[in-house]
């Protein structure tokens, strides 16, 4: 009973914190910088671009700041970037068209794997009856040899 209460408590704590996370997402230059790829050719996100004094990076950051100041939401800002630079500016592919497979397949893979493991576990299980059955008596000669050998390898 106690463990069930504990589980409920844990679960609710989990949900609360999830809600907190969801509520606190307002775009910033930093959060957008993680979602967009710098177009200077470095192939890294705007935040990670290590191209010193990268002009493209500062241009992109300026655009983010301007749009945030204009009060646009994250989706709208990302949309504007796509219009300007193309889909490749997004650090992760959009969830539509063919690109949705990149998001779905890992999940499918995970589930298929789980299905496979569950199948294997079921398939390999010793029938419970056999497991429960008392072990057959051991031939005394065998037992003697076995005990002797075990004594030799036994250490604390």
């Amino acid at each position: 009973m106690r463990s069930r209460k504990l589980a409920v408590l844990l679960l609710s704590a989990l949900l609360v914190s999830a809600a907190v996370v969801a509520a606190s997402s307002k775009p910033t230059v930093k959060s957008l910088g993680d979602a967009l790829i710098c177009q200077c050719g470095c192939n890294q996100t705007v935040n990670e671009c290590n191209h010193l004094e990268c002009p493209v990076r500062s241009q992109m950051r300026a655009m983010m700041a301007k749009e945030i100041a204009a009060g646009k939401g994250e989706t709208a800002i990302l949309q504007d970037f796509v219009l300007k630079y193309g889909v490749k500016v997004l650090a992760s592919p959009p969830t539509q068209g063919f690109n949705i497979t990149v998001w779905i397949l890992p999940g499918i893979g995970l589930l298929l794997g789980l299905g496979f493991v569950v199948f294997i576990v079921k398939h390999w299980r010793r029938p419970p009856a056999a497991a429960a059955a008392a072990p057959a008596p051991i031939d005394p000669k065998v037992l003697e040899a076995m005990e002797e050998e075990m004594k030799k390898v036994a250490h604390p």
């Binding site: 990670e48 889909v87 490749k88 650090a91 992760s92 592919p93 068209g97 063919f98 690109n99 990149v102």
Partner: peptide
Amino acid sequence: ISKAIESETITVGPPF
């Protein structure tokens, strides 16, 4: 794969 099938350059980066 995306480039081969959709002939569209996309990036799969840290957020993914």
